[in-house]
Design a protein around this nucleic acid. Structure first.
Lengths: 334, 334
DNA sequence: CTGTTAGCGCGTTCAA
DNA sequence: TTGAACGCGCTAACAG
C-alpha cells in the first residue's frame, strides 16, 4: 500500500541507507546514484514518513503553541507571526486553545510534550508553579509569548505592560484630564490585567492625582464589558472626563456607550486603550491607543525558540519589545 | 535520560505489553496489576511517546488544517470551531496558513501528509486539479471547509454563498432600492468571490433590475478596499442608493467613506454584507448582514472528519449550513 | 489475564 | 561512495 524507503531502494537498485542520504541531502552520494534514486522516488510517488523519521531522529520539526483563544483578534495576530517564522524555518505548529484556564493549559502542555514537539510557545494566563513543574519535566525549550513569569527564569518576549499603561494614562493627563477612569482586566491576569492596572496607578501617582476605586471597573476584555463599565462611569457623581481601557474592544464599547447616551468623543470624553488592533482605525472616531506589536511578538518569540532549539547561545532570553502611543481621534484636551 | 515503556515494565515487574495495556485503557488487566503499573509510571514520571505510538499504530490523532489566514477574524472563528471539536475527540491540529495561494496550499498539504495526519481540513481558494491530485495521493479523509469543489466529489461543509448574496440583495430590493452597487471579491475565488457575485446578479435579474458593471467593484475583502470602492460609487453620475458588500470589513469601510463625505447611513445609503462577524455589532450604525455561521462551519466540518476517520458511513457528505439575514441599522427603505 | 515476538519506516553508526 | 545492521518506543497479534 504505502511505499517506503525500502521500495525506493529496491527500485533504484541501491540500499535504503543511500535513499535516506539523498532524501536528507547528504552530500556523500555520487550524482549519478542520486539521480537514479530521485527517479525511483518520482516513479513510485514516495513520500517520506515524518513520524518514522521523528522516531529515529528524535526531532519532529513541529512546535507546540498554547494560546488563550485563536478567535481573539489579538492572539490570532500573534499566531500569524509565529506561523510565518515557523514556516520560514521549516517547522509546523500544533495549536491549542486553553482559554487562560490553568487546568486546560497544563493538560495541553502535556499532550504537546507527548507528541514530542521540538519546542513550546506558551501564551497564557499566569505562569504558576504547576506550569513551572510541567515545563521542568520536559527537555525541550520553552518561550513565553506575550506573558512573563514573575521570577523571569523562562525566556520570554512581550511588551512592558506596565509602561504601556503608564504612557496611555499619561497621555490623557497631558491633555489636562484629572478624573480618569479605567476599564481593566482581572488582576489575576499578570500582563493584561495586573500590570496595566499598576501602570494606571503609577501614572496617577506621578501626576499627583488621587486614586479612586470607583473609577476602575474590571471587564472581560470584550466589547460588552466595555459598555457595561462605561454605563457605571456615566452614573457617577464625579463623572470622569477620560477613560483608559486595557483593550481596544472594551474601549470601543465604551465609546459607543458614550455616543448612545448622546455624548461625544472626544468632546465630552476622551478614550484611549492598549492594543491598537486593526479595529482601532475601523471605528469612528478612530481610536487612540498604545500599540502593541502583536505580530512581532509572535515572530520574535518563534525566532527565539528556533535559536534555543538549535542550542545556539542567545544573548537576551527576555526580550521586551517597544510599544508606542498612536494618537488618532478619540483623545482630546480638556 | 527519557524513561520508556520498558523502564516502567521493569519497575512494575511486568511486561511492556501490560504497561501498554494499562496506558491504553485496555480492560484486560487485573486491577492490582494496573495499580502497580500506575505507581511505577508515577514514580518514574513516564510520559508516553506519541511519535512511537504513531509509528506502531499508524494513527497520530492529529489532523492538518490549511487555512487562508489565521489573522483574519472570519477564519479564526472557523479555526476555533475546528479546534474545539478536535479537542473533544482527542485530536490535535496542525495549522498552516496558505493565503489562498495554490503553490503554498499544495506544499503544506504535502508536508501535512508526510506528517501522517489522520485527516485534513482544507479551507482555501479554488480547488484545482492539482489539489485533487494531491488529495488523491493521500489515503486519509479530507473535508473542505468553507469551500466546495465544483464537481462536488469531496466532502465539504459550507453555506450557499450564492443564495446568501441573493438574500442580501433582495433585502435591499424589498426596501425599494433600485440602484444597487456591489463590492465583491475576485471572481477567481469561487465562494466569497464568484458565487456572491452570481447571487447579486440573480437578485437583480429576478427583480427586473438592469445590471450595470459600473456598479460593481472588486476589493480584497479588507476595510481599505471598501472605502476605495465606495469612493468610486460616490462619484458616479447614477449614484447607487444601496450597496451590497461581500464582507463585513469592506462594508464598514464603505460606511465610513459615506460618513466621511458628510452623508448618512441608512438615510442616504443602505449597506448590507455577508459575514456577520463580531464587528458587525461593534460599529455605528450597526451593520445589517447575512450571517454566516463560521464557528459552526468549523465545528461541523471537524465532526464530519472524525466520522470519516472512523470510517463511519456518513449520510450527507456535502453539508450546506443555513444562513440568515440579520437586520440591524444600516439598511433603510428608500 | 499476561508475556513474547514482530514489525512500524527511518536515521545512523560502522565497515567495506 | 555505499551497504548491513541496529535501534528509536510503542502497538498488535499470538500464545499461553
Amino acid at each position: 500500500m504505502t511505499v517506503t524507503i525500502y521500495d525506493v531502494a529496491r527500485e533504484a537498485g541501491v540500499s535504503m541507507a543511500t535513499v535516506s542520504r539523498v532524501v536528507n541531502n547528504n552530500p556523500n552520494v555520487k550524482p549519478q546514484t542520486r539521480k537514479k534514486v530521485f527517479e525511483a522516488i518520482e516513479r513510485l510517488g514516495y513520500r517520506p514518513n515524518a513520524v518514522a523519521r521523528g522516531l529515529a531522529s528524535k526531532k519532529t520539526t513541529t512546535v507546540g503553541v498554547v494560546i488563550p483563544d485563536i478567535s481573539n483578534a489579538i492572539f490570532a495576530e500573534v499566531a500569524r507571526g509565529i506561523e510565518d517564522i515557523a514556516n520560514m524555518y521549516h517547522y509546523n505548529i500544533i495549536l491549542c486553545n486553553a482559554d487562560k484556564k490553568k487546568d486546560k493549559e497544563i493538560r495541553v502542555i502535556n499532550t504537546l510534550l507527548e507528541k514530542q514537539v521540538d519546542g513550546l510557545l506558551f501564551m497564557g494566563g499566569a505562569v504558576t508553579d504547576e506550569h513551572l513543574q510541567a515545563f521542568r519535566t520536559s527537555n525541550v525549550p520553552i518561550v513565553l509569548c506575550a506573558t512573563t513569569d514573575e521570577n523571569g527564569t523562562i525566556p520570554s518576549v512581550d511588551i512592558d505592560h506596565e509602561a504601556a499603561a503608564f504612557d496611555a494614562v499619561q497621555t490623557l493627563i497631558k491633555q489636562g484630564h484629572k478624573t480618569i477612569a479605567m476599564i481593566g482586566g482581572t488582576l489575576q491576569d499578570p500582563a493584561n490585567g495586573y500590570s496595566r492596572f499598576q501602570g494606571y496607578r503609577r501614572a496617577l501617582e506621578t501626576a499627583g492625582l488621587p486614586y479612586d476605586e470607583n473609577l476602575v471597573r474590571i471587564g472581560n476584555y470584550r466589547y460588552e464589558s466595555g459598555v457595561e463599565a462605561m454605563k457605571h462611569f456615566l452614573e457617577l457623581p464625579n463623572r470622569p472626563t477620560a477613560v483608559f481601557s486595557a483593550t481596544d474592544e472594551m474601549a470601543i464599547g465604551a465609546i459607543h456607550c458614550i455616543q448612545d447616551n448622546g455624548l461625544k468623543v472626544p468632546a465630552d470624553f476622551s478614550v484611549i486603550s492598549v492594543d491598537n488592533s486593526r479595529m482601532a482605525s475601523m471605528v469612528r472616531p478612530q481610536l487612540s491607543a498604545v500599540a502593541q506589536p502583536m505580530y512581532d511578538i509572535g515572530a520574535v518569540s518563534m525566532r527565539l525558540l528556533t535559536k534555543l532549539m538549535k542550542k545556539e547561545t542567545v544573548e537576551q532570553a527576555k526580550v521586551v519589545l517597544p510599544h508606542e502611543v498612536v494618537m488618532r481621534q478619540s483623545v482630546g484636551s480638556l
